[in-house]
Design a protein around this nucleic acid. Structure first.
Lengths: 190, 190
DNA sequence: CGGACGCTACCTATCACAAGGTAGGCTGCA
DNA sequence: TGCAGCCTACCTTGTGATAGGTAGCGTCCG
């Protein structure tokens, strides 16, 4: 929050990376320590418990997600273009390395997460879905997006595809995330 | 495959249950043993390694999925009704207990799974997606389903919503899986 | 000036525990 | 007799976490 320690950020980066690859339960402080270049117990200096690290990690990712959302809204006035651009962003950052959204892993292992981490994950999801809801509302008003029912309900559909789609690129070789997003958007084009 | 030992099936049931709740890495032979009522090392008699158990588990789930698909095709001649019925089936069997699809967890932890389990998981996914592709093809021919592009591409969209939707019911309290499926189908109604 | 003080960042050593897996023995049914 | 099914006892490895200590940096008072 205050002091942006380099080691601290390196630990968060490493944790995010491991989370995407092997999930929450399968990475240890030793794994992170090896990557960062310090000894495992030293991590406790930055994050007293693994739960504390988890909370900091998701809070950090919430911040980054908000930044990405703001950037996309500035660069793409039309919500339809914006959705496609988000698809490209995810394809480049996640699918290119055959990883998945870190939040995906945290959802799969939800009950084993410390309660504070669970709350932060739920908050991330709420952020993302309410962001998409605004995009859909705007797109319908502009006439560039068409879908039945309420924007809030359809946002769940859109979000589900984006979330599960990242996973498909690694469990189903040959799947193209961009094609998936375009198929989704095609179904919402007037 | 051959001898349907009661204990063996009880172990598979317990494994599926734990998988849905805590994921692959976070359940142990001891956990299963406690549920089934035998000692942990005795499990090795039925499944030499955890990987063997994983393979048997996913193979078993592939079989069950195929049975469910066959039942739905018999009971619901129209693919649109069939999709809604599948949604109800999932809502009753999974979301009601705030669990998620066992396959969801296996995807999230894909790289830590034994290779044989990975292959079986990929096969499960392929089964499901090709099944949905057939439904969509049939629905379009019958005129009860409308969607852009190829059935095989849109099947990925449908499958993603079903997969991620089960997760939403436990990470986002208040989410109704049936509403999500209806929103999805509404977008594919002529 | 200078040294006592306290801070951050890291170390080594060690803990208690749980993981998957193995060895070998008992029991009861075909 | 033979073997499937289960047991107890044990092994190795790896886990999150704690205790206690050290090096280096800045600060502030006498």
């Amino acid at each position: 929050m205050i002091a942006p320690s380099t080691t601290r950020e390196a630990l968060l980066e490493a944790a995010a990376d491991h989370l995407q690859r092997v999930g929450w339960a399968s990475f240890s402080f030793r794994d992170l320590a090896t990557v960062v270049g310090i000894r495992a117990p030293s991590i406790h200096h930055h994050f007293p418990t693994k739960g504390d690290l988890g909370v900091a990690l998701v809070a950090w990712m919430r911040q980054r997600r908000a930044t990405h959302e703001a950037n996309l809204m500035e660069s793409f006035p039309d919500p339809r273009d914006r959705l496609l651009a988000l698809g490209d962003l995810i394809a480049d950052h996640i699918c290119a390395q055959h990883q998945s959204c870190p939040i995906y892993a945290l959802q799969a292992e939800f009950p084993v997460l410390p309660e504070a981490v669970q709350q932060e994950v739920s908050a991330w999801i709420e952020d993302a879905i309410s962001g998409l809801t605004r995009w859909l509302t705007e797109g319908r008003a502009r006439g560039s997006l068409r879908f039945p029912g309420e924007p809030a309900d359809h946002a769940l559909v859109v979000w589900s595809v984006l979330q599960q789609g990242t996973q498909l690129t690694r469990t189903r070789p040959g799947t193209d995330f961009r094609v998936l997003v375009r198929q989704l958007v095609a179904g919402m084009t007037p």
